[in-house]
């Protein structure tokens, strides 16, 4: 299996939607990030004080005075993250369970390829796409960081990007694994999207109500706590994201190898 036929086939069919996503995501990130110099001019602090403090904190908009604070909250912590999660979960649910429901797996599973191979190559197709999109976010931020002299430290940016990649990968993999375990795309979407929303709420509400464990158990807490671009590399957070991903994928894999193919 030196040529990865399933991986190539899936990526080929995803060329157009992936291009559109990459361009759109790059555009949105660029727009948000390039707003910073303007935001700097308005008196942000005054704006913030007009809002209820709990709301400011919940939105993660509490540190707008530095470029890293702003880009971390607005782009990495909100817009890019939300778009990537939507993509990762949608694609994770579709790339195995969706194709299974459509009947595409029937001839793959009766070919000499093993179920393991099909699982692995479809999973790889998901991660390749996520990597392309995260690379686009990084690229846009790097360019604007230099062009507008935002002064976001490079190691902070790389650490935040690693976290964003792992976070998207986790939720994409969760959707993928639930889909592989059940063969039902809707179930995969529901479970992964539900987990993401709960994770977001835990991370946002925990600090405002003063309950520490809420953000400590949330993948979003592992990724960013209040800001992904000001905390540097997080060995614990990154490990938790990676380990959870592996656990979820192994569970989905074991179930996929044993169960009936849906029609």
């Amino acid at each position: 299996m030196s040529s990865f036929p399933v991986l190539r086939r899936v990526l080929q069919s995803r060329r157009r939607p992936l291009s559109i996503w990459t361009v759109a995501l790059g555009g949105v990130c660029g727009m948000y990030t390039s707003l910073y110099p303007m935001m700097e001019k308005v008196n942000l602090q005054e704006m913030m004080e007009a809002l209820p403090p709990a709301m400011v904190e919940a939105l993660g908009y509490d540190d707008m005075t530095s470029a890293a604070g702003y880009v971390g909250s607005a782009t990495y912590g909100l817009v890019a993250m939300a778009l990537l999660l939507v993509f990762g979960i949608g694609n994770g649910a579709k790339i195995l369970a969706g194709h299974e429901e459509a009947g595409d797996l029937e001839l793959e599973l009766t070919s000499p390829l093993s179920r393991q191979t099909i699982y692995a190559q479809r999973l790889a197709a998901l991660w390749v796409q996520i990597s392309v999109l995260v690379a686009m976010v990084l690229l846009v931020t790097l360019v604007l960081n230099a062009a507008q002299s935002l002064g976001i430290p490079l190691d902070d940016l790389m650490a935040g990007t690693l976290g964003l990649w792992l976070l998207t990968g986790l939720f994409g993999s969760l959707a993928f694994a639930v889909g592989a375990a059940t063969g039902r795309r809707a179930v995969a979407l529901g479970v992964a999207a539900g987990a993401a929303v709960v994770g977001w709420m835990f991370n946002a509400i925990g600090p405002t109500v003063g309950v520490d464990w809420m953000s400590a158990v949330s993948p979003l807490g592992w990724y960013m706590a209040d800001n992904p671009l000001t905390r540097g590399f997080q060995p614990l957070g990154s490990s938790l994201l990676a380990v959870t991903t592996v656990v979820v994928l192994v569970a989905g894999w074991m179930r996929f190898l044993r169960r009936d193919l849906m029609t």
Binding site: A102, G103, P112, L113
Partner: peptide, 29 residues
């Protein structure tokens, strides 16, 4: 499995690829 040929009762076919591309893919498998 390589020695078996299977025609499913309901064959899935959708998407933008051509018949030639799809058959080439099935050969690749």
């Amino acid at each position: 499995r390589a020695r078996v040929g299977y025609l499913p009762g309901e064959l899935a076919m959708h998407g933008s690829s051509t018949v030639r591309e799809h058959l080439a893919y099935l050969c690749e498998l």
